[in-house]
Simulated scan of single mutants.
Amino acid sequence: MTIAIVTGASSGIGQSAAIEIASRGAGVILTYSGNEAGARDTVATIAGSGGTAVALPLDVGLTSTFPAFRDAVALALRETWQRTTFDHLVNNAGFGHMAMFADTTEDDFDRLSRVLLKGPYFLTQTLLPLLADGGAIVNVASGSASWSGLTPGYSAYGTMKAGLVTLSRYLAKELSPRGIRVNSISPGSTRTRIAGDAFARYPEVIPGLVAKTALGRLGEPEDVGVAIAALVGTDGRWITAQDIEVSGGFNLGF
């Protein structure tokens, strides 16, 4: 059995990725920050389908907690699966933030950097000794870092996600001697709780987004989760150093 770690799996894309990865026979260690109930729901869903999952708390914006988290991962691996290593890492945890360039504060920028770029960078570094050779890493970036997804108000957010895409390529290069594949996923507009459950609070924005999407609907977490599961699994065995846009063809005519 393979084991995957999925950060930020109490809702949305992370939750869907954890459930889809588990459905393919992997054990899952999932993390949560403020939504413990959602994490318990993820664990229960996986268990209800015959899988095994463990939920651990993690704030990816606090790098000082990473060594203790690595110890908790090692303990869960031993006690639950009698393993000393895991096979897949999905860096998904994050948050959305919109502010026009002229209005973006240094605090905004620093918080985005800590959670969306510095956190995944040093969490991966901290967990690397436990990652098995031949494993896989998927970093969840964003379409806001690509030409098709450029939207006013996301200069800082998109900058961090673009950094995550570049980090993925460097990791693919440096970790290739160990047979570890590294890719990033760039979702388009997806119905999640991002930015304070923005789609539920502002449903009037949805028709405009759908009109710009070639496949004619808003993305769902499951659309991205299945792509992540494919990349970490054997389906993605010959794919590395790539950024895969999962957007239904957003702004395809750009």
Rank of each mutant, 00 (worst) to 15 (best):
T104P: 08
T104S: 13
T104K: 02
T105K: 10
T105I: 06
T105M: 12
E106T: 12
D107G: 01
D107W: 02
D107Y: 05
D108P: 03
F109A: 11
D110L: 10
D110S: 09
D110T: 14
R111F: 09
L112Q: 11
L112I: 11
L112R: 00
S113G: 13
S113C: 12
R114M: 06
R114T: 01
L116D: 03
L117S: 01
L117D: 02
K118V: 09
K118M: 09
K118S: 04
G119L: 02
G119Y: 02
P120N: 04
Y121K: 08
Y121N: 09
F122D: 02
F122P: 02
F122N: 00
F122V: 04
F122H: 06
L123R: 00
L123I: 01
L123W: 01
L123S: 01
L123K: 01
Q125V: 04
L127H: 07
L128W: 04
L128V: 03
P129H: 12
P129M: 12
P129K: 09
L130K: 06
L131M: 12
L131N: 06
D133A: 11
G134H: 05
G134V: 09
G135A: 12
G135K: 12
A136D: 04
A136E: 02
A136G: 05
I137E: 10
V138F: 05
V138N: 01
N139G: 04
V140H: 00
V140P: 02
A141M: 06
A141R: 03
S142Q: 04
G143Y: 02
G143N: 09
S144Y: 13
S144C: 13
A145K: 06
A145L: 09
S146P: 04
W147N: 15
S148W: 07
S148I: 10
T151D: 13
G153T: 07
G153H: 11
Y154S: 08
Y154G: 09
Y154N: 08
S155Q: 09
S155R: 12
A156P: 11
A156Q: 10
Y157A: 13
G158M: 08
T159R: 02
T159M: 10
T159F: 06
T159C: 08
M160A: 08
M160Q: 10
G163Q: 04
G163F: 03
V165M: 15
T166N: 15
L167C: 08
L167D: 06
L167W: 06
S168T: 15
S168K: 08
R169M: 13
Y170N: 14
Y170F: 12
L171W: 15
K173N: 14
K173H: 15
E174I: 07
E174P: 06
E174S: 10
E174W: 11
L175E: 11
L175G: 11
S176Q: 14
S176L: 13
S176C: 14
P177K: 01
P177W: 03
P177R: 02
R178V: 11
R178M: 13
